[in-house]
Design a protein around this nucleic acid. Structure first.
Length: 468
RNA sequence: GACCCCAUCGUCUAGAGGCCUAGGACACCACUCUUUCACAGUGGAGACACGGGUUCGACUCCCGUUGGGGUCGCCA
């Protein structure tokens, strides 16, 4: 079988993290099987669908590299086809017109709630004579659902799930204004697009029963359903903005790399033995939809950050500088000079192993970018007491005499000075760090001095030595 | 409330009846490395929700309880 999967978001907001994972699993499964991955924008709700949301979703997918094999299908554009299918259903007796008003339905709902039942359309118009139709009311068209027996779905993730048909009511397929509803459109589009596997969130599980019934009424084959568990927040409750239900663009802005997010998302509800860090190429090779877990998992920023740190460390320096540049330039209020860029390029190797996110990388890099005189952090300020400043003055003199400004030469000179004066290296290294970086946290101080260059280093040391 | 689904360390998970003295990763704690901070390395603490079955033997199978989640729109 040629596998065809799809991601079918409704464009009512950004591409959130759960949607991203749904897209990822569909994409992985299609790539794994050599099938196709399609995209369908479910924009039949005209009131809530926006072009901005469509762009946000498309941007999010492309940032993650979840490319679809064909241009997206816009569901609303297919409304005539949907209406046509409803007409067929009407002709074959699988559908009927219902003249209940929204108010009457609301009443029904209220009553059901009061009686602690779930709301089910009572079938008022199911077998009623169309001649009874009240004037002036545009009817909706409902599906004539089977009332006896049960509907079974063989879910690739959830297993066999059965529900009594008496639990399901006659859903609306065509609204009073003639537009199709989701339940009908999905069935028609999945069929017409040749979808073989519908991989989607767990929240659609109950919809699968009704969609199965519609497929059956139409005599169409039902796709393989795979309902993947939802992602919860850190507290186990539904994902809210507070704990991660953000658009993928927010993760980009927070400084996460797409490959880190992808790797993390893969491990939420799916695993390949003990493998934690792997490429999408490996995931494609390993992924199978039947290996997805049934239980919901919680979103954990710590794990994402940990993964992100590894991907940052593995990224090439030019890319990291580009990613950090906007943040750096905002801090220094101007664009990067070549001199600064050079420092970043040589210093990046030891900078990047310290950062979990791009903003952290920016923060760690700033001391290479600021111009003299540096401002000192509270801790750096504390380190630079009178004694330290005196020692710095002496170190300045020693280093001024160096003919070779290499990391090794600087280290050797400083160490020699320390030993000959009976000073612990820390008493010099820490003030040196404060002087050169304005902070108390940085890569190795001799490396920093080497990267900064002779003039800049000496200048910064002199600044600190003479500071008030 | 009704229906459906789920249940291994705090979190993500490995585990397809004996391989389990339940493994790995994140987080946490200690130590090593680094006279900083990280990275890395070593070690530690930490779980099969509960109760019944089935079986010679259950984390693994069945039932129930509890807990969690989803759905119940002329939204998708």
């Amino acid at each position: 079988m040629n596998v065809v999967t799809r991601f079918a978001p409704s464009p009512t907001g950004f591409l959130h993290i759960g949607g991203a994972r749904t897209a990822l699993f569909n994409w992985l499964y299609a790539r794994h099987t050599g099938g196709k991955f399609l995209l369908r924008i479910e924009d039949t709700d005209r009131k809530r669908s926006t072009p901005e949301a469509i762009d946000a979703i498309l941007d999010g997918l492309s940032w993650l590299g979840l490319d679809s094999d064909e241009p997206p299908v816009y569901q609303f554009a297919r409304r005539d086809r949907h209406a046509e299918v409803v007409r067929t259903l009407l002709e074959t007796g699988h559908a009927y017109r219902c003249y209940c008003t929204p108010e009457e339905l609301a009443e029904m709902r209220e009553k059901a709630k009061a009686e602690k039942r779930s709301m089910r359309y009572d079938g008022t118009w199911r077998d009623r004579d169309p001649a009874d139709a009240p004037a002036g009311i545009d009817p909706v068209i409902r599906f004539r659902a089977p009332q006896d027996g049960e509907t079974i779905i063989e879910d690739a993730v959830q297993g066999t799930v059965t529900v009594a048909n008496s639990e399901l009511d006659d859903l609306i397929m065509l609204r009073a204004d003639g537009t199709p509803t989701y339940m009908l459109s999905v069935v028609v589009d999945d069929h017409d697009m040749g979808i073989t596997h519908a991989i989607r969130g767990d929240d659609h599980l109950t919809n699968a029963f009704r969609q199965t019934q519609i497929f059956d009424a139409l005599g169409w084959p039902v796709p393989v359903y795979a309902h993947i568990p939802l992602i919860h927040g850190a507290d186990g409750a539904k994902l809210s903005k507070r704990h991660g239900a953000l658009g993928v663009d927010a993760y980009r802005d927070m400084g996460y790399l797409p490959e880190a997010l992808l790797n993390y998302l893969c491990r939420l509800g799916w695993s390949h033995g003990d493998d934690e860090l792997f490429s999408m190429a490996q995931a494609i090779e390993w992924f199978d939809i039947t290996d997805v877990n049934k239980g919901a998992s919680r979103f954990d920023f710590d794990r994402l950050s940990n993964l992100n740190a590894k991907y940052i460390d593995a990224s090439d320096n030019a890319r990291l500088i580009e990613l950090a540049r906007p943040g750096i330039e905002e801090n220094i209020g101007k664009s990067l000079t070549d001199a600064v860029r050079n420092r970043l390029e040589t210093g990046m190797d030891s900078l990047k192993s310290r950062a979990e996110t791009i903003p952290q990388l920016v923060e760690l890099s700033m001391f290479y970018c600021f111009e003299r005189p540096l401002s000192y952090s509270e801790k750096a300020d504390g380190i630079l007491d009178a004694d330290a400043r005196t020692r710095l003055g002496a170190v300045h003199d020693v280093l001024s005499g160096l003919s070779d400004w290499s990391q090794d030469a600087i280290e050797e000179a400083v160490k020699e000075y320390a030993t000959s004066n009976g000073l612990k290296l820390g008493l010099i290294a820490q003030p040196l760090r404060a002087a050169l970086t304005g902070t108390n946290v940085s890569p190795g101080i001799f490396e920093v001095a080497a990267v900064l260059g002779r003039d800049e280093s000496l200048g910064r040391i002199a600044d600190a030595a003479s500071k008030a």
